[in-house]
Design a protein around this nucleic acid. Structure first.
Lengths: 350, 350
DNA sequence: CAATAATTTGTTTACGAATTAACGTTTTTA
DNA sequence: TAAAAACGTTAATTCGTAAACAAATTATTG
């Protein structure tokens, strides 16, 4: 026994339209009398009327929901993005349907379809895999999409990401300015764009300092395991590096463990710098120096851009004359930040 | 220009109903001929038809979405719950709308309303605040709800939670079996039920061992700050405790820091045991012994219970004779687990 | 071969809210 | 004083799908 516009209208002996107008806040616009308005308002309150967003969506072709597709919510980084996106959306009157696709391209495809079916007004996605075609199709259909964190080069898709190149540069320059030259870099998934950019930043900074011959990039996964294994190899090589740049905090954990096990001391024997933030990093022994991504800004901006696109589209649809293409491509590379802690110092000797 | 059942039907020169029947997988049931079925399937494929979940929901009065309301997604614990709930739901053909209410009761109320308006099929919620009335109202309306992690005593609401009492017991028994007697407990928000149960567990274990006079509970917040301050006080007291039981991992971080600063060694000078899991705890110096909550089971079970309730309700609605009340109250207290690491050992002297 | 049964397809209405066009009444304007 | 504008409201239609009901076609039986 759901309350609807009709049940209320019947009870009050007026038409559904009037009830609709009052309750959708258009009383002014349609000059409903105060008497009628109050009567409707009171009755709605009394019977706990909640308009059906489903029916409303069907009629208005807008859902006030956006889809948020993430590779893995249990990853702190993405969880933080989710938290910010969700709260930003709420502020603007939107809800977020969050999909966790477990780094699985198949699930991702399914999620996009499912969200499209739910007629969400737009999509924020940190895509997994390296095939933009799925998303480009969505974009072609004039459906608002913004990528976050991960993106594609040579694609028309808008995105917001960390300036990973700059992050890599900053990290390595920091090491170099501390007197390091044998700086090794342990990377994650080679094909991932953020990873590649971080590596490029590393390489540039090394070259800039004339350290070409010390460039050394190893590893192939964003995992503790990878960090551990690669670090052991690095420590056994000779001359061993005086500093390690880990391209993610998971890698850094593996590195941390390997160094501890080897009996070497951070930072006296070897320096460590990591990517990504986490409270725990401040409570390690020693606290870990790191490059942090502007998660909050990223999430906020991606929401803002998406809502902008949604608004644009709405306007374009209303003015029937314009053909209706969205040509704007927003691209943002936000600056990461260096957080100095105690895992980097001047090397003992060279 | 959206593709609908009608556009497809017109193009093929058949009725909408037939198209609907084929595409909703009821071809068998209504004995649609293979020829027609294939024709429809192919056409749907060709024009990328995606059924409107909105229209479908309006018609069927079910959305295949559930609402998940959490106090804070950026809290790793809840993020993990979200991840599991989302993936379990996907497996059962449901999507999850995640709401983050920032520990704000007002937002929570708003979220419940908004989800109700969206006609989600059910609700999983880790409620904030200590007022069950809102949720009890929802429950009264025969709307499927399951609480997770947090719950209310003296309420008819179903819930799934960790057996926090047992967790407290286990932690303290572990310390006692290692020879400790001066065991202090630093708690979080006093009024929160999980906190109270953990404290009760602590007290029981102490009494059980005849250590009544050593019972010592301090603190009032689930924060690093609180852990830090209370630990400093404890360390300055005399005789100081030989072990500290921190009721959350944030508290444990504060404790950790304070102990380090004091120059004392964990576990030789003082033992530490914590609540909640986190990878980082394995990489601290020393790795922290802790009680972990069965997050995955909790999330899975809450989904299962919720979907059960949803199913029940559906059946009850279909058979018009039965009045339609859901009397079942599911209550689950899942056993936490002790993860032994290196922050607990036999005290040096007593 | 007619009657009936089985199979296949179609017509229509309902879900709940929004919206267009229009109604009769009152007030203003020319 | 008649026409026009403003007012307060409503009936009817729409959104896309599902399903009850209805009908047409084909197959089977007496």
């Amino acid at each position: 026994m759901r309350e609807t516009l009709l049940t209320i209208a019947n009870r009050l002996g007026i038409s559904m339209t009037t009830v609709s107008r009052v309750l959708s806040g258009n009383a002014e616009k349609y000059r409903i009398s105060n008497k009628t308005r109050d009567m409707v308002m009171n009755e709605a309150q009394r019977c706990h009327y909640t308009p059906s967003a489903v029916a409303r969506s069907l009629r208005t072709q807008r859902s006030n929901m956006i889809g948020l597709i993430l590779p893995s919510v249990s990853n702190k980084y993405f969880a933080d993005i989710a938290a910010v996106v969700i709260s930003e959306c709420r502020q603007k009157g939107y809800s977020a349907i969050v999909m966790d696709v477990s780094e699985n391209e198949g699930f991702q495809k399914e999620s996009i379809r499912s969200l499209a079916a739910r007629e969400v007004d737009g999509l924020i996605i940190a895509p997994c895999g390296d095939d933009p075609s799925q998303l480009e199709m969505v974009d072609e259909m004039h459906f608002p999409v913004v990528l976050v964190d991960r993106y594609f080069e040579n694609s028309r898709l808008s995105y917001v990401t960390t300036n990973n190149y700059q992050g890599g540069m900053t990290a390595v320059r920091h090491l170099i300015s501390n007197g390091h030259s044998r700086i090794a870099c342990i990377q994650g998934v080679e094909t991932s764009l953020p990873n590649r950019k971080r590596v490029e930043g590393y390489v540039s900074a090394m070259k800039e300092a004339g350290l070409d011959e010390h460039i050394r990039v190893t590893g192939n996964d964003f995992s503790v395991q990878n960090g551990y294994v690669e670090t052991r190899l690095l420590l056994n090589s000779s001359p061993r590096p005086t500093a390690i740049f880990a391209l993610s905090n998971t890698i850094a954990l593996g590195t941390f463990k390997a160094i501890k096990e080897s009996g070497l001391k951070i930072p006296d024997d070897i320096s460590l710098i990591s990517f990504d933030d986490n409270v725990y990093l401040d409570y390690m022994e020693p606290p870990v120096t790191r490059i942090i991504q502007p998660v909050e800004d990223m999430a906020k901006l991606s929401v803002r851009i998406l809502l902008g696109k949604i608004e644009d589209r709405r306007l374009r649809c209303e003015s029937a004359d314009s053909p209706g293409k969205d040509n704007s491509k927003s691209v943002l590379h936000l600056a990461p930040k260096l957080v100095r802690r105690d895992s980097v110092c001047v090397p003992f000797c060279d």
